[in-house]
């Protein structure tokens, strides 16, 4: 067997340089891993700047989503058959099913035609010269990014509210003669907190998933737009291009992982029962 294997290896090495190709491949791969540090050092300033811009937009969008989605969800869950509740449910469904670029274009047109002229500048949205901290540039991006997480947070909050309202402790609180707002603030809201915290990672995932297309529409210098450009611009599979795509994707993945960990910690704080059950 050993002689047979040795013979086969010799044949392959001489007739077709398979072993050499494998060795070369491994060497190149290990060399690439060694180069990663140097590549990262070269790319880090650009990636970090893009990342900061993306997180600025995503953070503002998530903040808006929570700010509007929580009360809207509570309203829709508490009064599901009212006109407000139906409207909230309808808007929430529309937020999930509207193509992101369509919403982005609509918001861009609205801002360019009606909002930005009031501020004296019309085409700030597509300008790469203006600071991303300028609210005239940030707000339309954040509003578009907020659509899907807002829809998700609203629907999940509404579901949690409905579930909480059907619980025994709410009936007991009503039976004790507590006012509606007292039941809401003292009993229901603390109990839906953990469920709401659980919506944060998926909401962030919606935001991160929409980043490329929204940043592309608004020419926003973030990770998403850079990813699109890098994927398209490096079909020659250059090491630097591939590493850049890898770094950018990793930055988004690590953000999501961080959000999952933070949300889990928040859930434990808001609902100590979850920890008690686990242990």
């Amino acid at each position: 067997m050993i002689f047979l294997a040795a013979g086969l290896c010799s044949f392959l090495t001489i007739y077709r340089p398979v072993l050499r190709a494998v060795y070369d491949g491994l060497e190149a791969y290990l060399g690439f891993l060694g180069d990663l540090v140097a590549l990262w050092q070269a790319a880090a300033p650009f990636i970090l700047a893009d990342y900061a811009n993306s997180m600025l937009a995503a953070g503002t969008a998530l903040g808006l989503a929570l700010l509007v989605g929580l009360p809207a969800g509570v309203l829709a869950g508490a009064r599901p058959n009212s006109a407000g509740g139906t409207l909230v449910r309808l808007l929430s469904s529309l937020g999930i099913m509207t193509p992101t670029f369509m919403l982005a274009l609509a918001i861009m047109v609205f801002f360019v035609l009606y909002v930005l002229p009031l501020t004296g500048v019309r085409f700030i949205l597509l300008s790469s010269q203006e600071s991303t901290l300028d609210p005239r540039r940030l707000l339309p991006v954040a509003l578009t990014l907020a659509a899907r997480p807002l829809a998700y947070v609203t629907s999940q909050t509404a579901a949690a509210t409905r579930e909480a309202l059907a619980a025994d402790y709410i009936r007991t609180a009503h039976a004790k003669g507590l006012a509606g707002w007292q039941v809401l603030a003292g009993h229901m809201l603390p109990n839906i907190g953990a469920a709401v915290a659980g919506t944060l990672p998926p909401a962030l995932l919606f935001t991160l998933g929409s980043l490329p297309i929204i940043e592309f529409v608004f020419n926003w210098p973030g990770v998403g737009q850079e990813l699109l450009y890098r994927i398209v611009a490096s079909p020659q599979a250059s090491v630097a291009g591939a590493a850049m795509v890898g770094f950018l994707l990793t930055s988004l993945g690590m953000t999501y992982m961080l959000a999952v960990v933070l949300a889990a910690a928040l859930q434990r704080v808001l609902d100590p029962r979850s920890t008690a059950i686990t242990h």
Binding site: P212, I231, P235
Partner: peptide, 17 residues
């Protein structure tokens, strides 16, 4: 489930062609 569909599909289709 955590991979954004758009990015995955874009990366795959753009890379292959």
């Amino acid at each position: 489930a955590t991979l954004p569909s758009l990015l995955f599909a874009f990366l795959l289709i753009a890379t292959i062609g």
